[in-house]
Design a protein around this nucleic acid. Sequence first.
DNA 1: CGCCCGATGGCAACCGGTTGCAGGAACCTT
DNA 2: AAGGTTCCTGCAACCGGTTGCCATCGGGCG
Lengths: 320, 320
Amino acid sequence: MAATIKDVARACGVHVSTVSRTFSAPHLVNPATRSRVLAAADDLGYRPNRAARALTTGRTFNMGLIVADIANPFFPPIIKAAQAQARGRDYHVFVADTDEDPRVEEELIRTLTKQVDGVLLCSPRLSSKMIERLAEDVPFVLINRRIKGMPAVLMNVAQGARLALEHLAGLGHRRIALVSGPLGSWTSNEMQGVAAETPGLDLVFFGPNQPTEAGGLAVAADVAACGASAVLAYNDLVALGLIEGLAAMDIGVPDQISVIGFDDILPGRLNRPKLTTVAMPAVAAGRMAVDLLLQSGGEGATVTLDTALIVRESTGRAQR
Amino acid sequence: MAATIKDVARACGVHVSTVSRTFSAPHLVNPATRSRVLAAADDLGYRPNRAARALTTGRTFNMGLIVADIANPFFPPIIKAAQAQARGRDYHVFVADTDEDPRVEEELIRTLTKQVDGVLLCSPRLSSKMIERLAEDVPFVLINRRIKGMPAVLMNVAQGARLALEHLAGLGHRRIALVSGPLGSWTSNEMQGVAAETPGLDLVFFGPNQPTEAGGLAVAADVAACGASAVLAYNDLVALGLIEGLAAMDIGVPDQISVIGFDDILPGRLNRPKLTTVAMPAVAAGRMAVDLLLQSGGEGATVTLDTALIVRESTGRAQR
DNA sequence: CGCCCGATGGCAACCGGTTGCAGGAACCTT
DNA sequence: AAGGTTCCTGCAACCGGTTGCCATCGGGCG
C-alpha cells in the first residue's frame, strides 16, 4: 500500500489540508511546518496521486498522442520528441495507434477524453467535421493537417518540394515523375500544387499509391517506362521501394534515374545509395505540438516548420 | 462540460448508484430501468470517468511501457503490439522513453506508479536491485531481461545464434567474427556463450561496440583485417554499419564476406543486399507482455519466445 | 494597553464514481 | 394469511486530494 496524504498528516500531526498545501501551495504554509511535512513525506515515500488531484483541479497532467501507425518509421521521432517535451512539463503521454482506421481513432479519442488535458493528433484520418465535433470535448493540436480554427503544426512540404525540384532542375532533369501517395493526402496535394506551378518541367503523375515500399515497388515499371530521368516520391518508403524495383530491372540509381524522397527516415539514411530526401522536422514538430497544447491560450495558432533538402547519393546529373 | 453520472441520474430520475451499477454491475439493475439509464446516458454522451473510478476500485485500466529509445527501430513494433493488445483489454498505455538513462527510468516509474496497474519494462537499464525495490510498489513485466522471480518475456537469442552459426557453417564458413554490443548486454552474452560451445568454428570476438550503425562502421576495418569470411553482428543496425564500412573498402557482401544481423528491423529488409538476420519476435513479445501483466496471477512466469533465421541476401558460400 | 491585521492551519464540502447495507415491494411457500 | 425470499434501488461513506471559509494566534501600531 502506497502512502497517502492522510498517512503523512498523521505522521506529523497536521491536517491533511496542510499536507496538501505543502505540495500545491507551499507559500501558504509555515516554513517550519513545511519542512516537517516534507520530511515525513520523504520518509514514507509519499507521492501525490495525480489522478485524485485531477478530480478536483480538472488538470490531469496527461496528454494523448494518436498516430496512424507506430511502426511507420516516420512517427517514432515525433513520438519520442513529444514525449520528452511533455516529460519536461511534468506531463505523461498516452500513445495510441489507430492502425489507419478512423473508427478506432474516434473511439480512442472518446475514451481518452476524460483522462487527458489534450490530444495531439498526428496525421489523423478522421473527417474534419468529426474532428471539430470531438474538439468540443477536449483540446486538440493537429500535426500534419490543417483545419481552420484549430491549432496545428505543419511541415512546409511545398517549400521542400520546391527545393527538390530546383535541385533536380539544376542537375539537368526535365522530365520528372511525381509518385504521389494515398488519395486526398494533404502532402500529395501540396507536392502536386508546387510541381504544377513550376515552369520548364515536364511532369508525369503517378497515383494514388500506397505510402509504402510496396507502393513504390508497384509503380517502378511504369515510372521506368515513362521516360522520366528523375522521380519525386511521396515519401522515403515509396522512394526505397522504387529504387528496389528499378534495380530489379537493372536500372541504376542515380546513374540512370535520380530519386528523391520525403521524410528523412532512418532506412533511407542506411540505404545504398543513400537517399536524397526532403527532411521533415519531426523532432521539432513533436516538441512544438506539445508546447502549443499546453499554452493553448494561443487558440488556433498554426505553426509551419521548414523542411530541408538533404542531398545524398540517389540523385545525380541527368544523362543526355 | 462533459456529462457526469449525476447528470444521467437526474435525467432519468434515479439515484447515482443505480447509474453506476448500470455500467459496472448491470445484472443488479432491473432491465427496464437499465434501458432508461442507458438511453439517458447515450443521449447526454455520458462516459464514465476512468480516473474517478480508479480511485475507489484501485484499477486504473492504464499501464506503462518504458523503453530505452523509441526511435530505435527495434522498439516500435513492440510498442505497437503492446498498445494494440492493451486496447483489446480496454487498457490505455503510457509510453515513455528513458533516453538510455537509468535515472530517468527510475523517476518515470515512480511518477507512473500510482497511475497504472502495471509497467512493462523493455530492455531496462536499471540495476536488478533497483527494479526489485520498485516492484514492491507496482507490478512489472520485463521484456528482454531476466530477474529471478519476476515475470518476463524473453527472446531466445541463443537459439537464434545457433541457427545463424549453423547456417554459416553450412555455407562453408569456418573463421567467423562475432561483433558484440555494449558491455554487459544480455544478448551479447548469450551470443558469445553459444558461439563458444559450437565446435569446429574459428571465432574472433570484437567488442564492446555501440549498438548502432556507427558501432558497425567503426569495427569494419578490424573485421576485414582479421580474415574472417563471415560476421555475426550484435544487431541489424551494427550489421548495416558493417556492410557500409566494408563497401567503403570495396569488400562485397556477400561475395567476400557474409553478414548476419539480429532483430529483423525494417531498414535491414530494405537494404541492398537485403540483410540475412535472426528475427526477434517483437510483436509476439509486446502482446505477451501485456497478457502476462494482466493475468498476473501467474506470478513470476517467464515466457521465452522463439527466434527465426531469415535468410536473405547478405550471406553466401564461403569463398575458398 | 487595546485593536487590527496578516499568517497559519483546521474544517468540511466537493470532484466523479463505487459499494456495503438496509428497506420496500413483489413473489413464493406452506 | 403469515413469514421468508429475491429483486431492485436509495442512502451514505469512502477513494485521495483540493480549496473556500473561518478561527486562532502573535505582533505591530496608535
